[in-house]
Simulated assay, not measured.
Amino acid sequence: MKDNVQQEKGNKWVTRISYAIGAFGNDWFYAVLSTYFIMFVTSHLFGKGDNAMILYITNIIALLRIVELFIDPIIGNAIDRTKTRWGKFKPWIFGGGMVSSIALAVLFTNMGGLNRTHPFIYLAIFAVLYISMDIFIHSKIQVFGQKCLH
């Protein structure tokens, strides 16, 4: 009986520390995205004279923020219906972390010069990568929020 109580206290601390580390990582992710991404687009990806491409990128981001409003309830519903041997939340945390990290790393590249050779293909790939990254980031945020409620 005493061992179970000690084990529950230990699990509670592990959960709290894990949540804190996850929240820190998520905040760091958003800080990188919001601080450095627009600087990367305006100074490294598209130089002077490519104002139209910068306009397209910012419009894509704004449009995807609106689309995200409609996608978030679908993500929350999918998370609620998840039943795996690892539990409801762990696959979303792991998958969300992996996909969003890879997508962010690719977004900070010129995709092999595609931004110069085929700019509209670059924009299409950018839109798909950005919305995928955003969906998986929000799945992690929703999981963290639901774990706090439980």
Rank of each mutant, 00 (worst) to 15 (best):
L45R: 03
I17E: 04
S43V: 13
W28V: 10
I60W: 09
R16P: 00
F29I: 04
G10A: 06
F40G: 00
I17Q: 05
R16T: 07
T35L: 15
Y56I: 13
M39T: 12
F46G: 03
T15E: 10
A31D: 04
I57P: 05
L45S: 08
A20V: 00
I17P: 00
A23G: 04
V32P: 04
Y56E: 06
L33Q: 07
Y19W: 03
L33M: 03
Y19L: 05
D50Y: 12
Y30I: 08
T58C: 11
F24Q: 00
I38N: 10
F37Y: 09
K12F: 02
F24S: 08
L33D: 09
M39K: 08
N59T: 14
N59Q: 13
R16V: 01
F46R: 06
A20E: 00
N11M: 06
S18P: 10
R16G: 00
F24H: 08
I38L: 07
F40C: 01
N26L: 10
S43M: 13
M53D: 15
Y56R: 15
W13V: 01
G25V: 05
H44S: 15
N51D: 08
N11S: 07
N26I: 05
L45A: 05
T35W: 14
N51Q: 14
F37Q: 07
T35K: 11
S34D: 04
A52S: 15
F24L: 08
T15D: 10
A23R: 02
F40S: 02
D50M: 10
T15S: 07
V41K: 01
K12A: 10
S43R: 13
N26Y: 04
I17R: 04
L55Y: 12
S43C: 11
M53W: 14
S34A: 02
N51I: 15
L33G: 01
F46N: 08
K48I: 15
N26K: 03
L33T: 08
D50N: 15
N51A: 14
N51F: 15
L45D: 06
G49C: 08
I21V: 11
H44I: 13
K48S: 14
H44L: 13
W28D: 02
V14M: 07
V41H: 06
H44K: 09
L45E: 04
M53C: 07
H44C: 14
M39I: 12
F46A: 07
A31H: 05
T42P: 03
K48F: 15
G22S: 02
K12W: 03
I54H: 06
N51G: 14
A31F: 07
F46T: 00
T58H: 13
N51S: 12
N51C: 09
I21Y: 01
V14F: 10
F24W: 04
M39N: 10
K48P: 14
T35F: 11
Y30A: 04
T42E: 12
H44Y: 13
I60R: 08
G10W: 04
F29K: 01
K12S: 09
F24D: 07
F46Q: 03
I54R: 11
S43L: 13
A52V: 10
G10N: 01
V14Q: 09
F29D: 06
G25N: 04
L33E: 12
G10H: 09
N59Y: 13
G47V: 03
N26W: 09
A31Y: 06
G10T: 08
I38R: 01
S34L: 03
